[in-house]
Design a protein around this nucleic acid. Structure first.
Length: 460
RNA sequence: GGCGCGAUAGCAAAGCGGUUAUGCCGCGGCCUGCAAAGCCGUUUAGACCAGUUCGACUCUGGUUCGCGCCUCCA
């Protein structure tokens, strides 16, 4: 029985889908004006893991992850780069797709772009005005009136009174209340714009998710996810918009049953973020580390815990993953459905069902690796590989992982020939030469491993 | 200031009111020509102070420290 930590309830709850056997899930994706950093990688990988586990559990999942392709930063960046917004966003969408594919992220069912749904947003804003939850200001902006939404703050645990007391931003004089937020921004000269009942303008940030989630998943759906920093104000505002817009006769319509938020990636115990400038892009990290190592690194911590980034931690993750692949090396495995009745599989399932406890599930994988090292059993090896596939790991040929891309390693050295040469030297008890060859290879970053079955090698 | 989260061994990271988490590192042994890998064994825990309990790392209260949100942010 799957339990999910629901931010809305601040506790783990048994997951019950709205429609038996089906799950509707929406996750806030990226604003595409730059390369994705490790924080973005965590969202993609964490919810990919959720998506995979739901499917492995037998659910038919509709997974929507949006792309924000119009906003202030995009407009500014396009101007700086002297390119069109379409060029800029397409470039970074392509880069994002590349990065996520490398990280083993299965594509969401749908990846709608904000600019494709402006009509739907305008319709929703109109509805909010009609129902008295929004108002057009004299300057052409449209604001959401938080005072008219009784449940405002229920997700983030904030009260309007406290929020106003802590108000740190300059208050827009067009707003009726300092906490009102913008649904529609009137266009400034030179900015991209759409026609609307309130004049030319463009949508505010929050409304896109309300419009797109309702379009694809309906007014009431199962799971909504995103980074912890979106809890407030973004998700709070989504709730306010959707539940008010979808209300009937003053009765609010619950938008989402389970809200999930993943923890931050940190650097030196500080949140990794654009504004702090302490971020590492996915592609930078992938220059140094194997993508599967990065995926393993992300999933070896619980998705809600903070995750500290450092080379040491990545190195550690690499060694741990190497242990798993080493155990699988030379074992004939078969791809087949996991028998969840088996003790290790049941433990793995129990861990995953407990709010996606990947660290505990991974412990099962390591236990299997230990057993595999002793028995070299094809059954154990297959179970290890097939369990790992559920979280998107261990699907490569072990030699490919352990030896890396051949062309990278062996440009100047013929490893196989040197191994033959060394084995001849060993046979004639010429250990000086044998050790010399091993040393040559070690200096090239190649470790030799002798076994009764012969000599194999891997990258250090 | 308001609201919230966390503090576990050298590092990372989980579960659990009493029974080995797990990975890396260290140490001893086996194996090996020597290594590596592997196997066997093993040293390091639960910020601090109280309380509840037969028994607490695990529950309750307090203290200290760290982090996050309250502005764009995954």
């Amino acid at each position: 029985m799957l339990k999910i930590y629901n931010t809305l309830a601040r506790e783990k709850q048994v997951f019950t889908p709205i429609i038996a056997g089906k799950v509707s899930m929406y996750v806030c994706g990226m604003t595409v004006y730059d390369y994705c950093h490790l924080g973005h990688a965590r969202v993609m990988v964490a919810f990919d893991m959720v998506n995979r586990w739901l499917r492995a559990s037998g659910y038919a999942v509709t997974y929507v992850r949006n792309i924000t392709d119009i906003d202030d930063k995009i407009i500014k960046r396009a101007q700086e780069n002297n390119e069109t917004i379409a060029q800029l966003t397409q470039r970074f969408i392509d880069a994002m797709d590349e990065d996520s594919a490398k990280l083993g992220v299965v594509r969401p069912t749908l990846e709608p772009r904000a600019t494709e749904f402006v009509d739907g947003m305008i319709t929703m804003i109109s509805r909010l005005i009609d129902k008295g939850f929004a108002y057009a200001a004299s300057n052409g902006d449209v604001f959401y009136a938080v005072n008219n939404f009784a449940d405002y703050g229920k997700l983030s645990g904030k009260s309007l009174v406290d929020l106003r007391a802590g108000e740190r931003v300059e208050v827009d004089l067009h707003k009726k209340d300092a906490m009102d937020f913008v649904l529609w921004k009137s266009a400034k000269p030179g900015e991209p714009s759409w026609d609307s009942p309130w004049g030319k303008g463009r949508p505010g940030w929050h409304i896109e998710c309300s419009a797109m989630s309702a379009h694809y998943l309906g007014q009431h759906f199962d799971i909504h996810g995103g980074g912890q920093d979106l809890q407030f104000p973004h998700h709070e505002n989504e709730i306010a918009q959707s539940e008010a817009a979808h209300s009937h006769d003053g009765e609010l319509c619950q938008m989402v049953n389970y809200w999930m938020h993943n923890g931050f990636v940190r650097v030196d115990d500080e949140k990794m973020s654009k504004s702090l400038g302490n971020f590492f892009t996915i592609r930078t990290v992938l220059e140094q580390y194997d993508a599967e190592v990065v995926r393993f690194f992300i999933l070896r911590a619980h998705y809600r815990s903070p995750l500290n980034y450092s080379d040491q931690h990545l190195d550690d993750a690499k060694l741990a993953l190497t242990r798993l692949y080493t155990a699988l090396r030379g074992v004939e495995t078969t791809d087949e459905a996991v028998d969840w009745q088996l003790a290790p599989a049941a433990s793995f399932k129990a861990a995953m069902d407990d709010d996606f406890n990947t660290p505990l599930a991974f412990a099962v994988l390591f236990d299997l690796a230990s057993e595999l090292n002793k028995t070299k059993s094809a059954v154990t090896g297959s179970l290890l590989k097939n369990l790992a596939s559920v979280v998107g790991l261990l699907q490569r040929d072990p030699d490919t992982f352990l030896q890396g891309e051949l062309e990278q390693v062996c440009q100047s050295l013929d490893v196989d020939a040197l191994i033959v040469q060394r084995n001849l030297a060993k046979q004639s008890k010429n250990f000086t030469e044998a050790d010399s060859i091993r040393k040559t290879l070690a200096e090239a970053g190649i470790v030799l491993e002798d076994s009764p079955q012969g000599t194999t090698w891997r990258r250090a």
